[in-house]
Design a protein around this nucleic acid. Structure first.
Lengths: 197, 197
DNA sequence: TGCAAAATGGGGTGGCACCCCGTTTCACGT
DNA sequence: ACGTGAAACGGGGTGCCACCCCATTTTGCA
């Protein structure tokens, strides 16, 4: 799914221009931004966009790849800190806030489960095989393992479930006036649970 | 937003046929089903559909209204049972499972925050004023209040947050092969929290 | 520099949301 | 029963979009 970097110079140039234009358009109009408009702003034909990115998901992956990598780097930093349990919660909060405030990211990570809507939704359970999600699962999984060893996480909790939950929160709060605050509150709720301690 | 029932006999007949066709199409293709196809299957012109339901959200509300009412009735039943705390958790699970297995419902309840898509997503923060969500907030709020009185729920937890969280889970798991199981697991995780007790 | 392969993009197709406005159907009063 | 005004209808138009075809251009390498 994740497109390889093209080999020829002109192709690489167009690829980069498309990703840059997509980043801007998605920030403006969300994950359902018009692919034609992106191609137009990138100065390429729409066929070129579709050749480089056979699906909307592939384009989203390329747009968010670098930012997701930053989140993963942060996870690795936190894993070496003093209080791994608190660090894990903090990281999940960061992922939630980042997803809630970066239009399109949450959808990209959940494999287009929204749609979009609109038109951003695909029917068949196609193997999304999201590279971005895999990256987060790797980095977050290590952090979770250490937090579990420190006794800060209930056993049986999986990183995939947690990330799904956090991304779901991002998706639900994206577009709200106070997306960051709402996402933080909801993740906090999920981390602490509903019952009294 | 919620459309009033039309007065004239033919209008009422068309209205019902549209809702029935929409229910079938949405079950088949999700919340982003084609409105033209729905009109076609209902045997009406597309203009008639748009006159009765000025937005996709309005149609979704009409389609799911009855089913949501059932969930609310269940909440009222559970509120009179012996163990209100357990009942509350059970009800949230039911909402999550129902949303995860009924295509389009979660999107409808979150006011089209997915969209998916696709064209199922709207940019401006239009006042969704979802009747279905208000119904769930009312019925669930009462249940939450009683569970709180029984000491089964941490103070400061709001029903709106909980329903947002649960609907987010529905949205994220909708379309998965085992949507019900996954939704159940994630809600359970959120109810119990991440830290050990 | 020449040439095969890679890459391009204009334009076509089919589908969609949404709306205009001439036509049909209904409800109500007589 | 029937005429009439208002309500409702729907065919068809507009503009936008995803996605693809294929004649043409650009590139890298020998």
């Amino acid at each position: 799914m994740a497109p390889e970097r093209p080999r020829r110079a002109d192709a690489r140039r167009n690829y980069d221009q498309i990703v840059a234009a997509a980043e801007a358009e998605i920030a403006r109009h969300g994950a359902d931004a018009s692919l034609e408009e992106i191609a137009r702003r990138a100065g390429v034909g729409s066929a070129t966009l579709h050749r480089h990115f056979p699906s909307r998901q592939a384009l989203l992956e390329a747009v968010f790849h670098d930012r997701v990598e930053l989140l993963c780097a942060r996870a690795r930093e936190l894993a070496d800190g003093p209080d791994v349990g608190a660090a894990f919660g903090e990281w999940l909060q960061a992922v939630a806030v980042y997803g809630a405030t970066t239009r399109g990211l949450a959808r990209s990570l959940l494999g287009g489960g929204g749609g979009g809507g609109g038109s951003g939704v695909r029917e068949p359970g196609r193997p999304t095989d999201s590279t971005c999600e895999a990256m987060l699962v790797d980095a977050g999984g290590e952090l979770l393992r250490r937090a579990g060893d420190a006794g800060a996480v209930r056993p049986g909790v999986s990183i995939v479930d947690l990330l799904t939950l956090v991304n779901a929160v991002s998706l639900a709060t994206e577009g709200s006036p106070d997306a960051a605050g709402e996402a933080t509150r909801l993740v906090q709720l999920a981390l602490e649970g509903v019952r009294p301690h």
